[in-house]
């Protein structure tokens, strides 16, 4: 439903927003709490990314479907209830799929509810766009979040344990970098990736576009 005179993104562009141009981890630096906490291994990181994508997709779809019926005074309350519902559902699902994974992720599954990517997408995008467009954008954001988490989790698992997806890469004599599986390691690796990303973008030409997000969450 393109408004007259307003340029509209194609669905592909809408999808790529979250993957690259507005990547939630590398560009918007949103949702840092789960990013830093669960990215100690590639499996945990991907599971967290997929769980967040599921919540993102479900909640944006529902919010978008209801966007005309929800009075603006109670919209945040509505969004939070919807998001919390999907988080609860994904919490049960993960426990049903793998108890081991469920215990590794711990409280961070429930904490998806306060991940600002999700409320941010509901408020800034889904409440203003039709379901298909909202879902496309949410999928892109989710994929971007998965990529970001995986980038962190892979580096931390390789250096911190010498493994990737639990498979030993360097043999039994590997010296684990203990710091990488501790919280500071998360900050170091995130900083390294941000440096690389910003440097690449600058080299690609054009100054950095100011991101819409802020560091929090």
């Amino acid at each position: 439903m393109a408004l007259p005179g307003q340029q509209e993104l194609t669905h592909l562009e809408e999808f790529m927003e979250g993957v690259w141009k507005q990547n939630p981890v590398f560009v918007m630096v949103l949702g840092m709490c789960p990013t830093l906490a669960v990215s100690v291994s590639a499996v945990n990181a991907l599971a967290m990314g997929l769980a967040t994508t599921f919540v993102l997709l479900g909640s944006t779809l529902l919010v978008s479907l209801m966007r005309k019926a929800v009075p603006k005074e109670v919209r945040i309350a509505t969004y939070i209830v919807i998001i919390a519902t999907f988080v609860t559902v994904v919490d049960y699902l993960i426990a049903a799929i793998s108890l081991e994974l469920y215990e590794a992720l711990g409280a961070f599954i429930q904490l998806i509810v306060v991940n600002c990517i999700i409320l941010g997408r509901a408020e800034a995008h889904a409440s203003k766009n039709p379901p298909l467009r909202a879902a496309t954008n949410a999928l892109g954001m989710g994929l971007g979040f998965c990529i970001g988490l995986f980038a962190l989790g892979a580096v931390r698992e390789i250096l911190g344990a010498g493994k990737l997806f639990g498979v030993a890469l360097f043999g039994p004599d590997f010296q684990p970098w203990v710091v990488m599986v501790l919280p500071p390691g998360g900050f170091f690796v995130l900083g390294g990736w941000l440096l690389l990303f910003n440097w690449l973008r600058r080299r690609q030409g054009g100054a950095l576009k100011p991101a819409e997000g802020h560091v929090h969450g």
Binding site: Q175, W177, V178, V179, M180, L182, P184
Partner: peptide
């Protein structure tokens, strides 16, 4: 400090 945290044994 970095290597102290990374390689506490060595």
């Amino acid at each position: 400090a970095f290597v102290q945290a990374a390689f506490p044994v060595s």
